[in-house]
């Protein structure tokens, strides 16, 4: 999967969970940049992403995500 493709799918997931149609993610986006992306919604986002791609992240792995790009790279690696 291409990163761009993953980003657009993530947009949909983020918009749905954070109830904000204006979210457009880039690889550099961090939680700081997105209103409502906090500890609690993060878990809901992760769960939704896991479900969407039928993958599973480890806790340590989630900790290492510094921005959306890391998340995309992990999804990409798992879907190979």
């Amino acid at each position: 999967m291409e990163i761009e493709e993953i980003l657009r799918e993530l947009d949909t997931i983020f918009r749905d969970i954070l109830k904000n149609e204006n979210i457009t993610l880039t690889p550099e986006t961090t939680a700081k940049d997105v209103e409502g992306w906090d500890s609690l919604t993060n878990m809901r986002l992760i769960t939704a992403i896991e479900k969407h791609y039928n993958i599973r992240f480890g806790l340590r792995e989630i900790l290492k995500f510094k921005h959306v790009g890391d998340l995309c790279a992990s999804i990409q690696a798992k879907k190979k």
Binding site: A31, K32, W37, D38, S39, L40, N42, M43, L59, I62, L63
Partner: peptide
């Protein structure tokens, strides 16, 4: 913003 992860 992701404080719960930080606590862990």
């Amino acid at each position: 913003k992701l404080k719960y992860m930080r606590v862990y």
